[in-house]
Structure formats: C-alpha cells, structure tokens
C-alpha cells in the first residue's frame, strides 16, 4: 500500500519536474535571444546547460539506471569549458591567444 503510493508519487513528481524544467528552459531561451548585453546571454546559456544536467538526472531516475551518471558529469565539464570560453571572449576578444 505505502510502496504503491510511493512509486505513484515519484512518477507524478518526475512529470511535474519535467514541466518545471521545460518552463525554465523556455524563459532562458527568451533571455538568450533578447538579453541586452552579451553577459546576459552567457549566463542564460550556462543555466540552460545546468537545466540539461538536471533533465539527465531526472531521466536516469525515471529509467532506474545508473548509466547516465557519467553523462551528467560530462555535460558539466563541457559546460564549464564553454562558459570559460565565452567569458574569455567577452573579456579579451580572443579565445586562444
């Protein structure tokens, strides 16, 4: 009885989290298009990547697998390097000098 309630609650919560993340990504895409300055766009793209990591974690909860944990780490690392590249481009105008 309690176990059944728990698994139903988990599936409902996962769907609610998907919808929340979708709204969040939509708002961030609007910010990345409109953003008055380039720094706003950089922050928006960075946060889209964070949302993507959360999405991957949710998929791994829904599928009950641990194979996607490496993917979360990989997205985080590539995001870090991308953010550094954008920051250096805004600051200096060149990425590799």
């Amino acid at each position: 009885m309690l176990e059944e309630f728990g698994s139903q609650l988990l599936s409902v919560v996962i769907i609610v989290c998907y919808i929340t993340l979708a709204i969040s990504i939509l708002l961030l895409v609007i910010r990345a298009f409109k953003g008055p300055s380039n720094a706003d766009r950089a922050v928006a793209i960075d946060t889209i990547g964070v949302n993507m990591m959360a999405l991957t974690g949710l998929v791994s909860i829904q599928l009950v697998t641990d194979k996607l944990n490496d993917v979360v780490l990989l997205i985080g690392i590539l995001l870090f390097i991308g953010t550094i590249a954008i920051a250096k481009f805004i600051e200096k105008g060149v990425i590799i000098d």
């Binding site: 390097i81 550094i84 590249a85 250096k88 990425i95 590799i96 000098d97």
Partner: peptide, 9 residues
C-alpha cells in the same frame, strides 16, 4: 583546449 585557453598558444 582548456590548457590552451588558459596559458596561451
């Protein structure tokens, strides 16, 4: 690429 970005070419 991270090393190239940080320390230069």
């Amino acid at each position: 690429i991270l090393m190239y970005m940080t320390y230069g070419f």
